[in-house]
Design a protein around this nucleic acid. Structure first.
Lengths: 139, 139
DNA sequence: CGGTATCCTCCCTGATACTG
DNA sequence: CAGTATCAGGGAGGATACCG
C-alpha cells in the first residue's frame, strides 16, 4: 500500500472488477480478527504451546473454537502444528516466520488498545449519556 | 501493556474477576474490526467526508451500515460528526485526535496485510491442497 | 490428549421502505 | 441529503456427545 495515492484510488485498486468482499486486505484482516485469533496469536508469540495448555490458558474458549481458530491460523500460514510422537499424543502449536512478522503490527495495535481503553470507554459513556439526555430531556 | 511480563500473567490481568469478554483490549478491538470500520477509518484518515461522499466512495456499503458504523466510531471517540447549517442538511465526518492516533497502528497492520496478501493466499492454497490430497489420496 | 460431528442460537449484515 | 424502522438470511460462535 502506497500512502501517496489517495484512498479513493487505492480503494479502486483494491476492488478491481471484484466486489469489495474480495479486497485482499480484508481477506487477510478477517483471519486475524476473529474472536479468539488475536488472543491466541499473542499467546503463541510468547512461546509454543500445546493444545491443552492453550485451553487452560484461555478458559473461556470452547474446545471446538480452539481447534477451529488454530486451524484457521495454520491455514493462513501464521501458525505451525507439530504432532509430537509421544503417548498419549501431544500437539504443539507455534508461530511461523509469517506469523511472527504479523504479530509485530498486531501487537502495536493491541498496545494502543490497552493504553487507550480508558479514553475509549470515557467516550462511550459520554456518548450514551448525551444520547439519553437528548432523548428524554429535550422537551 | 508490558512485554516483560508473561502472556499468562497479562491474561489474568485482563480478565480480573470478569469473563474474558470484558477484556479491555477486546472491547476496543471489536470497535475497530467491524466489516466496514477499518475501511471508513482509512478513508477519513485522508480528509473529512460527508455522508453521501462516503456512500459513493464505498459503493458496496448499505445506507444502514454506513450510518451504524459511523455512529459506532463516533461513540468510541474516533470520529466526530458535524452538522453543517445548510439546506439541504449536510453532515461532515472526520477523525478526532483519538482516531488519528489509532489510525497509525491500524494502518501499519493494513500495510502488512497488503504486503503479505500473496504469502497468506499461497499458504491457504497449500493448506487446502494438502487437505484434499490427504482426504482422497491416502488410500 | 486432542480432536470431530452435530445441533442450535444469536447477532451482524443487508434489502427495503419511509421520514424530516 | 441524511438519516430511521422493520424484516429476513447467514455465518460465527457455543454446548454437547462421541472418537483414535
Amino acid at each position: 500500500m502506497d500512502a501517496r495515492i489517495s484512498f479513493a484510488d487505492r480503494l479502486k485498486t483494491m476492488q478491481g472488477d471484484q466486489p469489495l468482499d474480495a479486497c485482499p486486505v480484508r481477506q487477510v484482516m478477517q483471519g486475524i480478527f476473529g474472536k479468539w485469533s488475536t488472543l491466541l496469536l499473542q499467546a503463541l508469540g510468547e512461546r509454543p504451546y500445546r493444545f491443552g495448555e492453550l485451553r487452560r490458558l484461555v478458559p473461556d474458549i470452547s474446545q471446538r473454537m480452539l481447534t477451529q481458530t488454530l486451524r484457521d491460523l495454520e491455514r493462513d500460514g501464521y501458525v505451525y502444528r507439530k504432532v509430537l510422537p509421544s503417548k498419549p499424543p501431544r500437539v504443539e502449536y507455534g508461530l511461523t516466520a509469517l506469523g511472527a512478522s504479523m504479530l509485530g503490527p498486531l501487537t502495536d495495535l493491541v498496545v494502543w488498545a490497552s493504553d487507550n481503553f480508558a479514553a475509549v470507554d470515557a467516550a462511550r459513556r459520554r456518548f450514551d449519556a448525551d444520547e439519553a439526555a437528548g432523548a428524554s430531556g429535550s422537551g
